[in-house]
Amino acid sequence: MKRYIQGTFWLLLFLGLALAPIILLMIEPRAPSREFFREFSVALGFSGLALAGMQFVLTARFRFLSAPYGTDIIYHFHREISILSFLLILAHPIILFLFDPRTLKLLNFLSPDTPWRARAGLTALIAAILLVVLSVWRKKLKIEYNGWRIWHGVLATVLIGLAMVHIILVGYHFNTPFKQIFWVSYTLFWIGLLVYTRILRPFWLIRHPYLVEKVVDEGGRTYSLWLKPQGHGGLKFQPGQFAWIHIDQLPFYHRDHPFSISSSAAQPTQISFTIRELGDFTRTIKEIKPGTKVYLEGPFGIFSPDHHPQAKKFAYICGGVGITPAMSTLRTFADRGDKRPVTLIYANRDWENIPFRDELEALRSRINLKIVHVLEQPPEDWKGYSGYITADILNKELDSDRQPNVQEVFICGPGPMMDAVEKHLSALKFPAGDYHSERFDLA
């Protein structure tokens, strides 16, 4: 219940901050009346900018903000609301040009007759167009993720900064000291947010470093990175959560990557992340030397059994390295002495490359764990399930009681696997609120 109240509160605050400029500018005494189309265009510009500015809040990784929804949903919302705010910003000049074609001459950036307010607005608009094009088509344009992130931040700052300059230079609606103070405060809020995320928080992370203790080969091109806190109490987290990792790089560079924690939440001074070789960055994990300095930003995420204290049973449906949050949960349950039943349906390519295969077997003696392996390429004498995770397997292995709040099911693995499992669970009439997934496609 607390989560829903928090979620509703943040949503209403978001809406309030998005609408604040146009509501406050309507307070008497108002600026003199003008044509409807001109004021409609102005209102769309103000609202579009307010929504664009709110993206700094959404992507600032505030834990209190992501707690009710999950980080994946915050980024999903960020992508969608950003495109909608771009449409509002774009509509602002288009409406002006349509209803007053004389304003088209303001597009001549180099003309001495073009005022600086128009130049600032036009540059902000170009930054907005670039932001959307580079984000929506990043993969098609083959732009490297880290480079894109830096430019994304730069362009967003240019957009908000120059749009603010544009509004201040136009100054039409700021006819009272109250409205001027409001706009200055609004601007200072964005600057303060930028200072916090780009300078203050990285400084805090630098003062709470970790050192790599060891890198363990878990099989199946999967490696665990074990970290020890240096001079502080470690990371307090819930099993199933994740953190952003900066490896051998100061946090100012923002070259961090999100990974699930695989260690026990009962041991905050022994943190591990389990990572599979999938791309340029993950291929370097096995080469990291003990003693390397690491900074952790987190924990984040709601993909945790601790969010469902009422649950009587749990099930994890994992594919390959998607076992990571399940490992954290199983290790935590073992440390806590939690005997609630856990069913693990674990899909892998073959028997030889199953990450944590031996440790999972060992955990069966410490907790109430049932393991169901599903192998794509099983050995000849294999008696278990083969192929992919099907509705039939789920129907047989998951709890037959499909009442709400009995068995909480967590799904983690490759996107197509998660899509298929969600579809099967829905068809099997599992309560929609009882199965959970968290997707790391944040970019």
Binding site: L15, S33, A43, Y69, E80
Partner: peptide
């Protein structure tokens, strides 16, 4: 499911912003 709710909320916010913008334009044009 969560993603669909998030999309729906983004669209609701977008519509509300347009409605308030129309009210703003009307208030300043009379």
């Amino acid at each position: 499911m969560r993603k669909r709710i998030s999309t729906a909320l983004a669209i609701v916010i977008f519509i509300l912003v347009i409605v308030f913008s129309l009210i703003f334009a009307w208030a300043f044009s009379i």
